[in-house]
Amino acid sequence: MAEPMKIRASMKGDTADVKCLMNHPMETGLRKDAKSGGLVPAHHITNVTATVNGKTVLDAEWGGGVSKNPYLAFKVKGANKGDKVMIKWADNKGDHNSAEASIG
């Protein structure tokens, strides 16, 4: 998916505050299509990983219960200004995306 992903990372004391917005429909597979009445097939992010300077800090597994266009924030202690934060996701249809930002 070529939709952009936004990451904002800033230092608060010795901890990096990382916020991220992804673009994804996050279909649970339980929702009915208003027109056809059939179920909309599940299409949601299943895995999210975040690294700081290549080291994994967050490794998440998601179900369809995360809201559409997911928002995620986390904190990393010991990171420094200028470190590179990279966030990647993959979904149940094999789609994936990633974005990178420097801690400001």
Partner: peptide, 28 residues
């Protein structure tokens, strides 16, 4: 976990390398 959701488990976050015990997100 959403107690009464059709599928209760929403997300699992594994933290490592200095990640703090903090997660903020939006759920259904």
């Amino acid at each position: 976990i959403g107690e009464k959701n059709a599928m209760p488990l929403i997300a699992v976050f594994n933290l490592s390398n200095g990640a703090q015990g903090f997660i903020s997100t939006r759920i259904k």
